[in-house]
């Protein structure tokens, strides 16, 4: 057995993780995939642990995915969302955190609109904090599930050419992908309208394509980001129609590629805007595999932060086998 990889208290982003830590999470997710395929989808790995899902921003996919992961590992979970809680009564994040802590919880999974909010919380409470997306900063479990999906279909990540397409400027998914993929040795590029590409992104080792045709020519994997309607309203792009014409991923564009290109999308999709339906539903799309892998990745993260040993993951999930 190789040396056990240690994890910190929290998972706030992939920027701060080592190659060994990322690889360990992906490896631990492998045995956990099978749990969701059983008729009785439950193992006692986190029995007795209390987890709060604190969602300041609306989310369906990520929240449900975390909740399934928690429940399938037998944790007790509570969901708090923006509406119908003291969040909307103007309680500060630090006070909310202290109140939760006073109820003796073990973990917090948080989605928040401000970059750095997960770190802020992690610095102030002793519970484990898992970032489920903070502003435009990181969405580490999304990055991990994207990498697991690429690894599943490409057989590995090192040396693979991955291009993230769309609104990079406002995207936490893009940042987590960039940091994680770079650590695993992928070549990473981004493509989108220049108004949605952050200045200085080349300095962190990313290639920038201004034309989506060039990106498709180059890439083996495209991770297509959701284009939010607010970006048009804020004047970053003139219209969704024009965005689709120049940056949308269509069958016609993919047919000109020199190879098959694996298509990922973190969801929710705007069909006909950043991605055409025939691509989303096509043979090279792994978008639903990402969703399935998301549950396994989140189980792995919960298990490891709770102190689970990477080597014992296979055994741990077998304990309650009927």
């Amino acid at each position: 057995m190789t040396k056990t990889v240690e994890f910190g208290k929290d998972l706030t982003g992939l920027e701060g993780l080592s190659l060994a830590q990322i690889t360990t999470i992906l490896d631990v997710a492998e045995p956990f995939k099978e749990i969701s395929e059983r008729p009785i989808k439950k193992v006692p790995v986190l029995r007795g642990k209390t987890i709060v899902n604190l969602f300041y921003e609306p989310s369906t996919r990520t929240r449900v995915s975390f909740e399934f992961a928690e429940k399938r590992l037998s944790a007790d979970t509570v969901n708090i969302s923006g509406s119908g809680s003291s969040i909307v009564k103007g309680e500060s994040l630090v006070d909310t955190a202290r109140n939760l802590e006073a109820m003796r919880i073990d973990m917090v999974v948080m989605r928040h609109g401000s970059s750095g909010a997960a770190q802020f919380l992690a610095d102030r409470i002793p519970s484990n904090v898992i970032n489920a997306g903070d502003g435009q900063h990181e969405h580490p479990t999304q990055g991990l599930l994207d990498m697991l999906t690429i690894r599943d279909h490409m057989g590995g990540i090192e040396g693979r050419r991955v291009c993230i397409v769309g609104d990079i400027l406002h995207s936490r998914v893009a940042r987590s992908n960039i940091y994680g993929l770079a650590k695993l040795g992928a070549e990473v590029a981004v493509c989108g309208p220049p108004t949605l590409i952050p200045h200085g992104i080349e300095d962190i080792g990313v290639t920038v394509f201004k034309r989506v045709e060039e990106a498709i020519e180059w890439a083996e994997v495209l991770n297509v980001l959701r284009l939010q309607l607010e970006r048009m309203e804020a004047g970053y792009i003139p219209s969704l129609r024009e965005y689709n014409r120049f940056f949308g991923i269509s069958v016609a564009r993919l047919e000109r590629a020199p190879r098959d290109v694996l298509i990922l999308h973190p969801g929710p999709m705007n069909r006909g805007v950043e991605i055409d339906s025939h691509v989303a539903d096509g043979p090279h799309s792994v978008i639903l595999r990402q969703v399935t892998n998301g549950v396994a990745i989140r189980m792995a993260v919960l298990y490891l932060l709770a102190g689970g040993s990477p080597e014992r993951a296979e055994a741990a999930k077998m304990e309650n086998r009927a």
Binding site: E15, S115, G116, D134, G135, Q136, H137, E138, R172, R175, P198, H199, G200, I201, D203, I204
Partner: peptide
Amino acid sequence: NEGTISTSLGLRGIP
């Protein structure tokens, strides 16, 4: 400030 640090922190930059 707008630069590599604002990009990495995901904070809106002032050029």
